[in-house]
Design a protein around this nucleic acid. Structure first.
Length: 608
DNA sequence: GGAGGCGGCCAC
DNA sequence: AAACGTGGCCGCCTCC
């Protein structure tokens, strides 16, 4: 049974003597690692920090920032809080594991201001690990990395605390991931020294991990890590600022989609002989559709009858199909998009700075990088500029094609990409005429097909991407023609990338970012190189954009892969847009970048 | 009840 | 010869 023990002090929580010398870097700049223990994960929404820990080259420090009935009075917590502030401000360099979260917590608690902490040299062992080990080689949790690189027993350190949580009835079993709100705080109240030892150890792991990874890092790794470090403050500020929502518009959309669900639901209910049916249960839906005369044939991965929209495409116009599709779309809008926005004035997404293995960012809770646009602009009307501000929406135009032409190095193709509409040119090459009326495939599907091909699609996949009843053989022919139009440079590039992957297991982007690719999937190499290079460009562009927008009191809010949404005082809109476009375009001079942009007075919907 | 797989669908 | 890529997240279902 776990014993309570409130008497330990935390001046030295780690056996420092047996650590290698390179971890004991007492030199300037004065370097600390810092970690916070919080009641939950929503830094902007009511959670609080009860412990902070700092490790430097030879000591571990604990700060109880909230009182504890047995271990810490209000006065002691106040003293710890003030000491924490002093010690953070005394550092030159601060290492976090996932800096974004801890910085939000420290700022929200009032320990330091955003400007005070971002003035430090901030490091992040999550980003560093992804740069050094390769972003495809996760997981990147602190415990996992520490076990691999610092202390083989690190994984076990969590077990004791999990046992305490089980003893308290907070979780069912050791290893359970989902924990109730305030779980760590509640555990601290009963087992303070246990939780505090755990907190101290994490910070020590973070400090050591930084030095171990720095030892391993190549010059290239440090180059790309430095880019990540430079962009980090902007991303934290974007999360902190958040995006304003039109609450009434959310209500309006919710009411509209609820109406659609109700109306289509009632008609479908009637078609099912007034028997209840769960429209999210695919087996039930398949049975229902068959009973209504729909001849389903396409199968899912596991051999069930598929009811997804591509399988139902050929039945378009059949009443039961149209009703079902409309019902599902409305349900999707409600559950995924309106629900997380409901009754919120501002939405603070979390960005994962290296969220994708290629180096792209991802967004979650909620994901603001996949707000619907193809089915209509209305969901984007929910996102509005603050009073007195407008949005600036700027995106890199056909950046992937520009990167492809850069890597191909073919001057003629380069000119086509830079000076004309490359997809009109492509259609002309494929169909032998500039007259689009005579093309079998229009510009837009051709564009989709082209990207599918460069990402490794074969004939059948290409055909299904383009749709319109194209056969697999026609898909193969089209791929052949498109490759022919690109000239020998395309094949040479693809071959050399695949050869390098089979030889070394990776390729490197222009930002020196390593793209590890499974040699058995070497055909994804071109995509990895292009998408990764686009990510490098965007990150440099975001750095430039944030800096350039400052003069107008404007700032970025969102990054959607090749697009930046910024907020700007209305009176500077036009000038700031020009500056933003120029800043993004100056991200690299290896190839010309074209940036298109719009001022959106009312909402995000005007960007498209 | 939680974890994870699956089917499905939104974006670039 | 053939293989589209990168994500997040919804609800259902099965397993434990």
């Amino acid at each position: 049974m776990l014993a309570k023990n409130n008497t330990i002090t935390h001046e030295k929580g780690y056996p420092t003597d047996d650590r290698p010398d390179y971890l004991k870097t007492g030199d300037e700049p004065y370097t600390i690692a810092c970690d916070t223990e919080t009641s939950g994960l929503d830094w902007f929404d009511g959670d609080f920090c009860f412990i902070a820990t700092i490790s430097d080259y030879d000591r571990d420090y604990l700060y109880r920032t909230k009182p504890h009935p047995e271990a810490c009075t209000v006065d002691e917590a106040t003293a710890d809080f003030n000491k924490l502030r002093r010690d953070i401000l005394a550092a030159d360099r601060i290492i976090f594991h996932n800096a974004s979260f801890d910085i939000h917590v420290l700022v929200k608690e009032g320990v330091v201001s955003m400007e005070e902490v971002l003035a430090k040299e901030i490091h992040d062992t999550d980003l560093l690990a992804r740069c050094v080990l390769g972003a495809a080689n996760g997981p990147f949790g602190l415990k996992h990395l520490a076990t691999k690189l610092v202390d083989g027993e690190a994984d076990a350190s969590e077990t004791a605390m999990m046992e305490a949580m089980v003893a308290l009835g907070l979780i069912k079993k050791v290893g359970q991931k989902k924990k109730p709100p305030g779980c760590y705080h509640t555990t601290w109240l009963s087992y303070p020294d246990l939780v505090e030892r755990y907190a101290l150890q994490d910070t020590r792991y973070t400090y050591d991990l930084y030095h171990v990874l720095m030892e391993k890092a190549t010059d290239d790794d440090l180059t790309i890590y430095e880019l990540e470090r430079q962009v980090l403050p902007t991303i934290i500020r974007m999360e902190h600022t958040g995006t304003k929502l039109d609450i009434e518009k959310v209500d309006e959309l919710q009411a509209k989609y609820e109406g659609v669900v109700k109306e289509t639901g009632e008609k479908l209910f009637a078609l099912n002989g007034y028997e209840e049916i769960n429209w999210d249960a695919n087996r039930e839906v398949a049975d229902f559709l068959i009973r209504n005369g729909v001849n389903l044939t396409q199968l899912t991965e596991s051999g069930e009858l598929a009811v997804h929209k591509w399988a139902l495409e050929k039945f378009a116009g059949v009443e039961v199909i149209d009703l079902f599709q409309e019902h599902q779309h409305a349900a999707k809008m409600l559950s995924t998009y309106t629900a997380p926005m409901k009754d919120r004035d501002t939405v603070h997404t979390s960005f994962w700075q290296i969220g994708a293995r290629t180096g792209r960012m991802s967004s979650s809770r909620p994901n603001l990088q996949n707000i619907p646009v193809r089915s209509g602009p209305e969901m984007r009307e929910v996102f509005v500029p603050r009073a007195g501000y407008v949005f600036l929406d700027a995106d890199y135009s056909s950046i992937e094609l520009r990167i492809l032409s850069y890597y191909m190095g073919d001057p003629a193709f380069k000119r086509i990409v830079e000076d004309s509409d490359p997809f009109l040119w492509l259609g002309e090459q494929v169909y032998g005429t500039a007259d689009q009326e005579q093309w079998k495939v229009g510009r837009s599907p051709l564009k989709n097909g082209f990207y599918a091909m460069t990402y490794g699609a074969g004939g059948p996949k290409l055909a299904s991407t383009i749709g319109g009843g194209m056969t697999a053989q026609e898909g193969r022919d089209l791929a052949k023609h498109m490759k022919g139009a690109l000239g020998p440079g395309y094949k040479q590039l693809n071959n050399s990338i695949q050869a390098q992957i089979k030889r070394t297991g990776y390729v490197k982007t222009i930002g020196r970012r390593t793209q590890h690719v499974d040699p058995d999937r070497a055909y994804v190499g071109l995509n990895a190189l292009i998408q990764g290079t686009a990510a490098d460009v965007m990150k440099q562009g975001l750095i430039n954009a944030a800096e350039a927008l400052k003069q107008f009191d404007a700032y970025p809010l969102l990054v959607i892969h090749d697009e930046i949404l910024a907020e700007c005082p209305a009176e500077h809109a036009d000038e700031a847009l020009d500056v933003l476009r120029a800043a993004m375009a100056s991200a690299t001079d290896l190839f010309p970048l074209k940036v298109e942009g719009k001022v959106c007075v009312n909402s995000f919907a005007e960007g498209k």
